[in-house]
């Protein structure tokens, strides 16, 4: 496969994953607003921070209010991480690698682009936000479904999955890092409703509120949440899950060679396997997450180099 094609597949799925993650962050904000929680400015700010766009946002707006944050994250083309930018970029990459995709996958991406471009043409109000978010999620599910149902399990598939899990690992680590202070043991003593809402925010922003409750029978402690999102391999958005997948896809791609990216991924994975969440708290949760975000960035760069994405 061409290096450029591998890069296109990787980025196509990173962007798709990112658009879904951004939508989920907004959905969480909306949910809290609707269930009577006080969504103050700092909450919208932390959503922008989690999405990694805080400083770019501040260049355009002075305050973090619902309408501006929503539209900035959903449809602002000045924001390269907005859902619309991501969908455009995913579709451009898909066009570039079209010969590597099944027609089902291509059509699913193309249709996602056509539909969302239309839906995101005008500012999105609270009234239709839920519908737009549902549409984003549906379309990304369609692409994923087409990928799983129609693509050969070969190197093409592996690069797609690598993009997805790299982006997801990065996203989960960021969400945790923005809110890590809520999870610190000292904060747990406060036990106010505000903090419960913070946990809920974290869990909802990775679509894990229900599964967590089900697994822990409602017992939400900072450690159990951190454990769930960092080390639990049953949880498809946990760091451990993402890295297990990354190692799996990479070792298939790197078969026969010793590629630096494979070694690096294995090292990162080892830090997430057979660990106890107490150790991580002892090390310092923030330091651990900072390191995880840095590792993911380094790994992405190494993948790009080892598989010759660019000349």
């Amino acid at each position: 496969m061409l290096g450029r094609t591998a890069g296109g597949l990787f980025w196509m799925f990173r962007y798709l994953e990112r658009s879904e993650n951004t939508a989920r962050l907004l959905e969480t904000g909306l949910r809290i607003a609707l269930t009577g929680g006080q969504v103050n400015e700092s909450e919208w700010e932390s959503i922008a921070t989690t999405a990694g766009v805080r400083s770019a946002y501040l260049e355009k707006f002075d305050t973090f209010d619902q309408a501006n944050v929503t539209n900035y994250l959903l449809r602002d083309l000045d924001n390269p991480s907005s859902v619309l930018s991501c969908i455009e970029a995913a579709r451009s990459n898909a066009r570039m690698v079209r010969t590597a995709l099944s027609s089902e996958v291509w059509e699913a991406v193309n249709e996602a682009w056509m539909t969302l471009k239309e839906e995101l043409k005008r500012p999105v109000s609270v009234k239709n936000l839920a519908q737009v978010i549902r549409s984003i999620r549906q379309h990304s599910s369609l692409v994923r479904g087409a990928l799983h149902g129609t693509m050969l399990r070969n190197d093409i598939f592996d690069f797609c999955r690598l993009g997805t899990f790299t982006e997801r690992a990065d996203n989960t680590a960021r969400i945790l890092d923005v809110k890590y202070y809520v999870l610190l043991p000292s904060a747990a003593y406060v036990g106010s409703s505000m903090d419960n809402m913070q946990w809920e925010t974290i869990l909802r922003s990775v679509s894990a509120f229900r599964s967590f409750r089900w697994l822990n029978e409602g017992d939400a402690t900072p450690k159990s949440i951190a454990d769930f999102l960092i080390l639990d391999k049953r949880m498809p958005r946990s760091l451990a899950f993402c890295y297990a997948k990354i190692v799996g896809n990479l070792s298939f791609l790197g078969e026969g060679d010793t590629l630096p990216c494979v070694t690096l991924a294995e090292q990162i994975n080892a830090r997430l396997t057979g660990r106890n969440i107490d150790e991580i708290f002892d090390e310092g949760l923030h330091e651990f997450l900072k390191c995880a975000i840095g590792d993911t960035g380094r790994l992405a760069a190494q993948i790009q180099e080892d598989f010759r994405f660019y000349g």
């Binding site: 496969m1 061409l2 290096g3 450029r4 591998a6 791609l253 060679d257 010759r308 000349g311």
Partner: peptide
């Protein structure tokens, strides 16, 4: 790119 006297394409391998 021209490599070894031929036009060659950059693949992942």
């Amino acid at each position: 790119k021209v490599v070894d006297g031929k036009v060659q394409m950059r693949t992942t391998k």
